[in-house]
Amino acid sequence: MQLESFSADADSALVRGDLSGPQWSQLKFSSASLLINLGSDRANRPAVESGIQCARDALLRDLYPEIREQLEYNIANGLSALHEMDLAVWRATSASQPQGLFAIRDRESLRTTRALYASVGYSGTNHDTRGRALCNLANMLDHSGRWLEAYQVFVEALEADPTNGNAAGNAAELLRTRSARGRGLGGHYAAVYDNYRLQAQRHRSRTVEVAGENVARRWDALPPSGSTGHTSHDGDPLDQYQQWIKRHRLALTMAVEGLGSDDPHWDSAMVESVTVGIGEPDPPTIFMSMNVLKAEYLVARRLAYEGERLLAESLYAQHPTDSGTYANTLDLSIYGEPSAQLILAQRATLTCSTR
């Protein structure tokens, strides 16, 4: 392939001194982009693999740090393309096998891909690349059944780049699908869906740039829900704890925005009903278990908030109200009640999640 030959010629030119480090890096980046994009479109595995190698070569030499995040983004796109190609083969040859088995087999590659998208999306400086990376990460999460996490990442993609109509369209489609299943807060999902649908259609030209004309037409075809539901219950604006919960989406609710309710007991998510056999306990023990787990989660959440608040108050030093005396470990570590609260909150949450 001519692109592969071009990449090899660039390597030789760098050795001869005919190219500077930044010039070589940019050529490798361009080669990687073209190989991965063309290879993905044509299901050409060798081309995609060559593109990934081009990007990895440039990343390893690191002669032009300014494009490091774009190179990581290229590698993630290449790995994602290889996964889709392998998945297509799996579907064609293993139709009787659950698709989840393939995801388990490919889990290390998927984990690497998600980590690269997350690195670019959360640590990068280019708003366009960050938005694209987070949108791709969200789609991966949604495809693996982690739709709530996917929704959060779509929102973060739009925070990075509000013009990314593809992220808005994907968020709208995610909510429309969930609402159509008749579970959760249908009116709420529909109202939020309408907002994202309009945002996607308003930024149609950007969707074409990011994802192509066919995707833009898909978002054009999204119908209005006709819902009069609420988009968000925002709680008491003067209650810092409530606003912290809202900002970090830590409410135990079926809502995707806000606290889910204006009721004082807005942590309303629970097991609504179960089917039990004859002779089983009445009521089923799952209700008692959920009550205990919920209470423990709420305590862990408040511990995390208090720890974060006290650390900020003390400017990340020992809080004035902390009565402890701590040895100086000469590594700039912070000791005391606020940091211990954060650690205990994390431990409590992990304990809840493994029960």
Rank of each mutant, 00 (worst) to 15 (best):
L3K: 03
S7P: 00
A10D: 07
D11Y: 00
S12W: 05
L14G: 08
V15C: 00
R16V: 03
R16P: 02
G17V: 00
G17H: 01
S20E: 07
Q23R: 15
W24T: 04
S25F: 05
L27G: 05
S31Q: 05
L38R: 05
D41L: 15
D41M: 12
D41A: 15
A43N: 13
A43M: 09
A47N: 03
V48C: 02
R56H: 08
R61M: 12
Y64E: 03
E66L: 10
I67A: 02
E69N: 12
L71G: 08
L71R: 07
A76P: 10
A76Q: 08
H83I: 07
H83L: 07
A88T: 01
V89W: 09
V89L: 12
A92Y: 00
T93N: 12
T93A: 09
F102M: 07
R107E: 03
R114Q: 14
R114I: 09
G121C: 01
Y122E: 14
S123D: 14
R132A: 10
L134N: 06
L134K: 11
N136S: 15
N136A: 14
A138R: 04
L148T: 06
Q152A: 15
V153N: 02
F154A: 01
F154N: 02
V155M: 05
D161W: 11
P162V: 04
P162H: 03
P162E: 02
N164L: 01
N164F: 01
G169A: 05
E173A: 14
R178E: 14
A180M: 09
R183S: 13
V192G: 07
Y193S: 09
D194C: 13
L198C: 07
Q199K: 10
Q201F: 08
R202L: 15
R202Q: 13
R206C: 04
R206Q: 12
T207L: 05
V210P: 06
A211L: 05
E213N: 07
W219K: 09
P223E: 13
T228A: 14
H230K: 13
H230W: 10
S232N: 09
D234E: 11
G235R: 04
I245M: 09
K246Q: 12
M254A: 15
V256C: 11
L259N: 08
L259W: 03
S261D: 11
D263Q: 15
A269N: 06
A269E: 10
V274L: 09
T275N: 11
V276D: 06
G277L: 12
P281F: 07
D282K: 15
M288R: 13
N291G: 15
N291S: 10
V292K: 03
A295Q: 05
R302G: 00
A312N: 08
E313W: 08
A317P: 01
A317I: 00
A317K: 15
Q318I: 07
Q318C: 03
Q318S: 01
T321W: 10
S323D: 05
N328F: 08
T329E: 08
L330F: 15
L330P: 00
L332C: 11
L332E: 14
S339Y: 03
A340Q: 14
Q341S: 09
L344I: 13
A345C: 06
Q346G: 14
R347K: 13
C352L: 15
C352F: 10
